[in-house]
C-alpha cells in the first residue's frame, strides 16, 4: 500500500514538473515573459471578435461576450489536441532513452494549456463582472464544464497521440478535421439558427454540449435540451475511456515505433 502511494506521489510530481517545464519554456525568451499569459488571450479575443463581429450576422445581444464564452474553451480544446497528437514523436529522444510514465507527455501539454485557459477565463470573468452579466448560481456549473472539457480533451489527445505513433496519417487528419470541427460547433453562431435535424446531429459532437454549458454558466444563454446533453456526456465518456485504454495498451511499445 505504501509503495503504491509512493509510486503515485512520483507520478504527480513528475506530471507537475513536466507541466511547469511546458509553461516556463514557452515564455523563457520573451521580453514580456509571463505577461504573455494575459496578453495572448486578450489579443486573440480582440482579433477574432472583430473579425466575426463584421462577418457573421448572428443576432445575439453583445456578440463579443457570446463569442468569447464559446471561443475560450474551443481554443483550449483545439490547441491541446493539435499539439498533443504529434507529441510522442517529438519526444522520441526521451522515449528511447528513459523509462517514465509516457502519459505525462500528453497530460502535461493538456494541463499547461488548461492553465492558460484558466487565466484567460479569469480575465473574461472580470469583464463579465464589469458588464454585470454574472450570476453566482449559474457560475456553479462552471467547474463541471471545466472538468468535462478537461477529461474529453485528455482522452481524445491520448487516443490520437497513441494512434499517431503507428499511423502518422492521424496528425494530418487532425490538422484537417480541427478547422472543420470549429464550424461544426456552435461557437460563432447559435444552435437555433440550424434546422432541427442538424441541431441533433451537432449534439453528437460532445464539444457542443460543453460549450453550451460554458455559455449558460457565463452569460446565461443556451438553447439546450437535457436528453441531448446525456448523449454528449456518454460520447465524452466513451472517448475518454477509449483514449486511456488505448494509450495504456500501446505505450509499452512506443520505443519500437519512434
Amino acid at each position: 500500500m505504501l509503495s503504491f502511494l509512493k509510486k503515485h506521489e512520483h507520478w504527480w510530481q513528475f506530471l507537475f514538473a513536466m507541466t511547469a517545464k511546458e509553461i516556463k519554456a514557452r515564455y523563457k525568451h520573451a521580453v514580456l515573459g509571463f505577461l504573455w499569459i494575459f496578453l495572448n488571450p486578450l489579443l486573440q479575443m480582440l482579433v477574432i471578435g472583430l473579425v466575426f463581429q463584421f462577418f457573421v450576422p448572428v443576432k445575439v445581444d453583445n456578440y463579443f461576450l457570446f463569442l468569447f464564452s464559446g471561443l475560450l474553451p474551443w481554443i483550449f480544446f483545439s490547441y491541446s489536441l493539435t499539439k498533443c497528437t504529434p507529441a510522442i514523436i517529438f519526444e522520441r529522444g526521451l522515449i528511447k532513452k528513459a523509462k517514465f510514465p509516457r502519459e505525462a507527455i500528453i497530460l502535461s501539454i493538456v494541463l499547461s494549456n488548461f492553465f492558460h485557459f484558466l487565466v484567460a477565463l479569469g480575465l473574461f470573468l472580470l469583464i463579465l463582472i464589469l458588464f454585470g452579466h454574472l450570476s453566482l448560481l449559474r457560475l456553479l456549473l462552471l467547474p463541471v464544464a471545466l472538468v468535462w472539457i478537461g477529461l474529453l480533451t485528455s482522452g481524445l489527445s491520448l487516443l490520437t497521440a497513441a494512434l499517431n505513433v503507428k499511423y502518422r496519417d492521424i496528425n494530418f487528419l487532425v490538422q484537417a478535421v480541427v478547422p472543420l470541427w470549429f464550424y461544426a460547433t456552435p461557437i460563432v453562431y447559435t444552435l437555433d439558427l440550424l434546422p432541427d435535424l442538424l441541431q441533433k446531429i451537432l449534439y453528437l459532437n460532445p464539444v457542443t454540449a460543453i460549450i453550451e454549458m460554458f455559455r449558460f454558466s457565463l452569460i446565461g444563454l443556451s438553447s439546450t435540451s437535457i436528453d441531448l446533453f446525456f448523449i454528449s456526456i456518454l460520447v465524452s465518456l466513451v472517448v475518454f475511456l477509449l483514449g486511456c485504454w488505448f494509450f495504456r495498451k500501446e505505450n509499452k511499445n512506443f520505443d519500437d515505433w519512434v
Binding site: A17, K21, A25, K97, A98
Partner: peptide, 20 residues
C-alpha cells in the same frame, strides 16, 4: 535525455531526476 535547453541547470536537475 530529458534535459531541456531553455531551462536553467537547477530546473533541469529536478526534471531529469524525476524522469529517472
Amino acid at each position: 535525455a530529458g534535459f531541456n535547453p531553455e531551462l536553467i541547470g537547477e530546473e533541469n536537475i529536478y526534471l531529469n531526476g524525476l524522469i529517472i
